[in-house]
Amino acid sequence: MLIHGIGSDWRMWQPVLPRLAPTRDTIALDLPGYGDSPRTGMGARSGIGALADVVEGFLDQFGLPTAHLAGNSMGGWVALELARRGRARTATLLSPAGFYNNPEGVFVRASLLFSARISRRLAPDAERVTASRLRRTVLFAQFMGRPWRLPAHHAAHMMRVFASAPGFDADLAAITEFRFAGPLALADVPVTIGWGSRDRLLLPWQGRRAVRALPGSRLVPLPGVGHVPTHDDPELVADLLLEGSTTTG
């Protein structure tokens, strides 16, 4: 199961799906309030626990006591929360949120609020704005190591999703106020953490904090990619997801 980050939707995983689908039963879902998913099932709550409750209900609905979980950014933290509850067979995390210190948390909030403001202003004209490779590079440099590789139609869609997510402000406030609190329910859940060398949002040294907080986990540097790495280097990311989800039992 693939879980996206804040302000995104399942389509961020599209570049890696062709590599995963032949050997994995793959589910890429929209979290409540993102993409095509309405903001339902959470009541007035927001943040990681509430989002994890909804995904856990999805697992229950489909009769899946556990799953191989992968998540990016906020989605990585949701995957960890589900692993903490004993719902993960493996967890593969791409720049998971929740391992910043207080000044870094302030930076994340300010950076994403600024990006959201820009997206909301430009979204009505998203296709024209993102048609230029130079403009895509400038607009998405905060999130991608190689933003010029992002196709124009994907860029326009990402801008509209980012601008229109009704849960964005509340989830952002919640995730930057708190930090990941382990331990995992099962100590033998394999945890793989990939961190882009060009991550300009959740800075790469936070990966070292993550492995200290998750004994037995392994940190895999991802050269040349940014915070949302699936368009930067689909093969590199797909290989990590396949390796991270390879286990017995």
Rank of each mutant, 00 (worst) to 15 (best):
V16I: 12
T192A: 08
R218L: 08
M1R: 04
L219F: 13
D188M: 07
G105Q: 15
R87A: 03
A123R: 10
A97K: 06
L64Y: 11
N72H: 12
L236P: 04
D239Y: 11
E177Y: 08
S164K: 08
A126K: 02
G41P: 04
Q61I: 02
M12L: 14
W205R: 14
S119M: 04
L31Q: 15
R135A: 15
R87V: 08
L139Y: 11
I175Y: 03
V138C: 04
G41F: 06
V16G: 12
T230N: 13
T137F: 02
D25V: 09
A163P: 03
S46C: 13
P204R: 09
F62N: 05
A123L: 06
N101H: 06
A88Y: 01
A174D: 03
Y100C: 13
D60Y: 03
L241E: 11
R24A: 06
D36G: 12
Q142I: 09
H231Q: 12
V55F: 05
R45F: 03
S115H: 12
G35R: 01
D30H: 04
S46Y: 05
A110F: 09
R135I: 10
L80E: 07
F180K: 00
L222C: 12
Q206D: 08
V78L: 05
L150H: 08
E81Y: 00
P151L: 05
M42Y: 01
L64Q: 08
Q61K: 10
F168Q: 01
T246K: 07
W13Y: 15
A28K: 02
E81F: 01
L222I: 02
P96T: 01
M74Q: 13
P229V: 05
D232T: 05
F58S: 03
M159G: 10
P65I: 07
G71V: 09
R89Y: 00
R146T: 07
G35V: 10
M158F: 13
R208W: 10
S95N: 07
A152E: 09
D233V: 11
F178V: 11
G226L: 06
A83F: 12
T137L: 04
A123D: 06
G35C: 02
V191T: 10
P229F: 04
D53R: 07
R128S: 08
R87G: 07
H153D: 11
N101A: 12
A83P: 11
D233K: 00
R84Y: 00
